[in-house]
């Protein structure tokens, strides 16, 4: 176990250096969520007048969704890096090194998680500047970044499945973009459950995004809602297990 951790740590460090050296990678996934944060919080600002909208402002309601959107964007970048490593031969280099093969995937998971957490922190800081308040304070923000990281890992698994199966960077990116908006809009990310059409509200209940967004939303607006947090951890954790089982399988197939 310590050996796997040490090995994946080496590969994590490599990804971190890349992130620092190409800051664009960090901000690529952030640009669009930041624009959404600015635009949506203005365009939908009067939604708080609707009956049933129980948040102080649309901004307060929106911040968690933007954190989720950012983590999703970030996650869908993960597979692109995998394709690059396959094409450049770096993956082969790691595979012939005397390290466990699980370390290769795990190093990537840790790097994805770190990137998602860093990006979540940027979104929180920007929303603070825009006047958002966090009911749970700094511990709550820390909890948000942890949840965002887990959420990022879960979806990064899907991105890696696509990447390993297609070995095509563009395709991996496009599929990611195509998935992002439907899954977000078919959840409670931009409209509270009570204001959604009935069919959509039903769909949202089966959408893992809804659970992470609701947990984050509670942390921002009301406080430590342990039920929501447990549900988010359960659903997102479950999703992570499924996508990583798939990614591990695709990885084994790809390296054989």
């Amino acid at each position: 176990m310590t050996r796997t951790l040490r090995e994946s740590g080496i590969l994590w460090a490599r990804q971190m250096k890349k992130l620092v050296r190409i800051p664009l990678l960090l901000f690529f996934a952030l640009a669009q969520p930041l624009i959404f944060l600015l635009l949506f919080s203005q365009v939908f600002t009067n939604l708080d007048r609707l009956p049933g909208f129980e948040y102080d402002s649309y901004l307060q309601f929106l911040v968690p969704s933007i954190v989720a959107l950012t983590a999703l964007n970030s996650a869908f970048q993960s597979g692109i890096g995998m394709v690059t490593d396959i094409e450049s031969g770096m993956l082969d280099k790691f595979l012939i090194a005397p390290i466990r093969r699980s370390s290769v995937l795990l190093g990537k998971v840790f790097a994805d998680a770190t990137r998602s957490a860093a990006q979540a922190t940027v979104i929180v800081l920007v929303s603070l500047l825009m006047g958002a308040r966090f009911a749970t304070g700094i511990p709550g923000v820390a909890a948000m970044t942890v949840l965002a990281a887990l959420f990022g890992i879960a979806w990064a698994g899907l991105s890696n499945i696509i990447a390993l199966r297609t070995r095509n960077g563009e395709l991996t990116m496009i599929v990611g973009i195509l998935i992002t908006f439907p899954v977000l809009f078919l959840s409670t990310a931009f409209m509270p459950s009570i204001l959604l059409p009935e069919w959509l509200d039903t769909v949202a209940k089966f959408n893992p995004i809804t659970y992470i967004v609701e947990a984050l939303r509670a942390l921002v607006n009301t406080g430590w809602d342990w039920t929501a947090i447990a549900q988010a951890l359960g659903v997102t954790g479950g999703l992570a297990v499924v996508t990583f089982a798939g990614a591990t399988r695709a990885f084994r197939k790809a390296i054989e």
């Binding site: 490599r14 250096k17 450049s88 770096m90 012939i96 005397p98």
Partner: peptide, 17 residues
């Protein structure tokens, strides 16, 4: 794996390091 080294045509070096 601990006893072999591989180098080749497609120099696999990390461009960002």
């Amino acid at each position: 794996r601990s006893r072999i080294g591989l180098a080749g045509q497609y120099a696999a070096v990390d461009e960002n390091l």
